[in-house]
């Protein structure tokens, strides 16, 4: 294995866990998340030589978010979660964290771009300008999409976003 291949291997193994976490929030499903990260990394692999002197992570992230929106447009993002928040796992076993169920349900209601904005801003902690760069949209659109997304989230998960000043 040459050093470039080794570098790519190291990059994949170092970054996959973090990418999977973001992808999981974007898709709501482990397998879709794996597919999404895999597809993004395939494109990174194809571009690896020319990315060597730049920022492969920014490239991968950008590809991943764009792929996800494309998937959704093609109807691939089949959410498997139920419309109703399950109140209880099967008898004798334990339900999962209430907050996670509520948040998962709320995220599932968001269109992909709003969901992407939420993940970039509040999970990846990107600035508005960085979010705009990743998604290829204006900062104004980031602001408006964030605002609308938070309104929607508050509707479905008020306990997570009930504090004053949330929409700033």
């Amino acid at each position: 294995m040459d050093s470039t291949a080794a570098d790519f291997d190291a990059y994949v193994r170092a970054r996959t866990p973090a990418l999977l976490r973001s992808a999981y929030l974007l898709t709501g499903d482990q397998h879709l998340a794996e597919d999404l990260v895999q597809d993004a990394l395939i494109r990174t692999h194809r571009a690896w030589r020319r990315l060597a002197d730049s920022n492969p992570d920014a490239y991968t992230r950008k590809v991943m978010y764009h792929l996800n929106i494309g998937w959704w447009r093609r109807g691939r993002s089949a959410e498997r979660s139920t419309e109703q928040v399950p109140e209880r796992a099967e008898a004798g076993r334990y339900d999962v964290s209430d907050n996670r169920l509520v948040l998962r349900h709320a995220l599932n209601q968001l269109p992909p771009k709003r969901r992407a904005v939420i993940v970039l801003r509040y999970f990846e902690d990107l600035t508005e300008s960085a979010t705009a760069e990743v998604l290829g949209i204006s900062i104004g659109t980031v602001k408006s999409q964030t605002s609308k997304a938070l309104v929607q989230l508050r509707k479905f998960a008020p306990q997570l976003l009930e504090v004053e000043g949330m929409l700033r």
Partner: peptide
């Protein structure tokens, strides 16, 4: 403010299982 949302997202994202995608990526 949105600390609960941040914490909630972090907790939810923690459900994602870590897998080694290296072979799948190279095949793809």
């Amino acid at each position: 403010m949105t600390q609960d949302l941040r914490a909630g997202l972090a907790e939810l994202a923690g459900e994602a299982r870590s897998v080694d995608l290296r072979d799948r990526v190279l095949r793809g």
